[in-house]
């Protein structure tokens, strides 16, 4: 009897862990998708809502120079560009571990590596490394 209870409890724990992990991956995928959608729509308000106030942006430019940016420069860049037709997106959530996540948004022209943190229950992008795709 005791063994059956232990097995049942373990199975329930495993099921809950699977569900929670799937929820986290889905939430980070949605964040990445919303980020790209807001960027291509020049939706600065939407973009600002997805990134943390301490966002660090590093843009790899031709010639190997890294340009530094932050949340304000990201939204300014989105605002200065006209809304574009959104290309097909290739979104991969590499990993979620506790309150940290790592994902990639590929759009044909460029790649954005997004590092996100769960802050008070909400996933926010806290680091971006972006550059042109080869």
């Amino acid at each position: 009897m005791e063994t059956k209870v232990l097995v049942l409890a373990s199975a329930m724990l495993a099921h809950a862990a699977v569900a929670a992990a799937q929820d986290d991956v889905a939430a980070v995928r949605q964040l990445a998708s919303d980020y790209a959608t807001a960027w291509y729509a020049a939706d600065t308000g939407g973009l600002a809502a997805m990134v943390h106030g301490q966002l660090a942006v590093r843009t790899l430019q031709a010639g190997g120079r890294l340009q530094e940016g932050d949340a304000a420069s990201l939204t300014r860049a989105a605002a200065s560009g006209s809304a574009e037709r959104m290309p097909a997106l290739d979104i991969v959530v590499f990993n979620v571990y506790g309150n940290a996540a790592f994902a990639r948004v590929g759009s044909g022209k460029r790649t954005d590596y997004l590092q996100a943190g769960r802050i008070n229950g909400q996933w926010k992008i806290i680091n971006i490394l972006q550059g042109a795709q080869p």
Binding site: R58, L60, G64, F94, N95, R104, T111, Y113, L129, P134
Partner: peptide, 25 residues
């Protein structure tokens, strides 16, 4: 992942997990 001159690496250390984004400079 490797995308041109950028890459993504996971490092599991003794007490933590690091997600590393790298650039070839």
């Amino acid at each position: 992942d490797v995308s041109g001159d950028m890459a993504a690496v996971k490092l599991v250390a003794q007490d933590w997990v690091d997600y590393l984004a790298l650039a070839r400079i």
